[in-house]
């Protein structure tokens, strides 16, 4: 089958690849571009582990065809840290013991980033809503909710 070209920006870098039509963004990111931060959990859009941000919106990369991402700006958990300096969301998750096996974390932090980008000081209900599409097996969610609220508290302190 003829391969088709696709170009997009991944975590600030221009990427170009020839892909098979119908390939999911998840598989292209992981297998062709070496970004294994999005995880293939259920591969059917119910667990959220593959969540990435496409043009500012939270999307499930396992249900997104890579060819629909032409010209898009894509952010993944793999691009959050600045060198060895973790993103504040990642740091809060570490500090709050809000991840255990770690499989949900890359999708979870992207869902949280979309929330905090839009609403730097969300309510608990906002946080619950924002992560409701991301399944976590280990933490019982409460440590994650608390971690997000701690980021939002430090956001509001900086704003003052």
């Amino acid at each position: 089958m003829a391969r088709i070209p696709v170009q997009f920006t991944l975590n600030g870098q221009e990427k170009a690849e020839f892909i098979e039509s119908g390939a999911t963004l998840l598989n292209v990111l992981r297998d062709r571009m070496g970004d294994t931060s999005p995880k293939g959990g259920c591969q059917q859009g119910t667990c959220g582990a593959c969540s990435v941000i496409i043009d500012g919106e939270l999307r499930l990369s396992c249900l997104t065809l890579a060819e629909t991402c032409e010209g898009a700006t894509i952010e993944t958990a793999g691009g959050l840290a600045n060198g060895s300096e973790l993103h504040p969301i990642q740091q809060a998750i570490v500090d709050g013991f809000a991840t255990q096996c770690g499989f949900c974390a890359p999708g979870m932090v992207m869902a949280i980033k979309v929330l905090l980008d839009a609403k730097p000081a969300p309510s608990r209900e906002d946080v619950v809503e924002a992560i409701s599409g991301n399944v976590c097996r280990c933490t019982g969610y409460e440590p994650i909710i608390q971690a997000v609220l701690s980021v939002s508290r430090s956001n509001s302190q900086q704003a003052v």
Binding site: F97, Q100, R137, C138, T139, G140, Y141, E142, P143
Partner: peptide, 14 residues
């Protein structure tokens, strides 16, 4: 202690 608490909180949910 922090990891024990993490295990127990998650386990309680489970």
């Amino acid at each position: 202690p922090a990891m024990v608490e993490q295990q127990l909180v998650g386990g309680s949910w489970m």
